[in-house]
Amino acid sequence: MKKKMNGYLIAGLIITCILAGLAILGNFYTPYDPTAMSGAAKFQGPSPAHIFGTDNFGRDIFSRVLKGSSTTVFIASCTVLIGAVAGTAVGAVTGYFGGVVDDILMRMNDALTAFPSILLALVVISILGPGSEINVILALGIVFIPSFARLTRTAFASIRDRNYIESARLMGASSARILLIHMLPNIWSVLLPAITIGFNNAVLAEASMSFLGIGVTPPDASLGYMLSEAQGMFARAPWYAVSTGLMIIMLVFGVGLIGEGLQRLGKDAEY
């Protein structure tokens, strides 16, 4: 398989690496304490000292964006991890075995899909209790399972009857070995783009949830929560909303480019 990098992939990787680097940095170091207030420095516009300005409590927005990105990226990554791993497990089992297992699991899947995802997340959050990062991750993770399950089920089912899988059965390979070693490497081209799309949806979902006040709660910062804060002071500190929104957009844009690039790569590799 001659795999060529394409422009989408390179651009996406560059943007994402820079932002991911900033997010990781935000976890260990920020120029100012992201929660430190200063009465003297309220509503300052962008300046060399505060490059994104300050908010109504005089907190440095650049520091808050760094810290918030780190929270958001962490939540989105964990969410996608849960959704992809559990969803792929369900998809693999239903796609490979078919039959009754398929019927039962996919009907449950349909039931989950029937709810709008934000509503479903709301239900899960109200069961688990709001406020903690872990619960946001769990709620969104569960919401993300069905889409991965549906996608990977199709992919697993499409290669189930290939001769090489039949050969694997004939040589006595266990079902786990067939699924993980013989089949999984052949569905990366479907799974990887889906992971990038899932990551973006997770960023946006986390933002919506925090914006609605059922996600991350203060004093922790996440991009979504900061956006909802920024909304209240948009007239006095537009730089807050702009810098936070820009960060979300760039993150989603970069990862989206990677997804597009991977999809094109997968198309080239098809036979």
Binding site: Y164, P185, Y271
Partner: peptide, 8 residues
Amino acid sequence: YSSLNPAY
């Protein structure tokens, strides 16, 4: 072709 796993 289809009797050999393309990934390996």
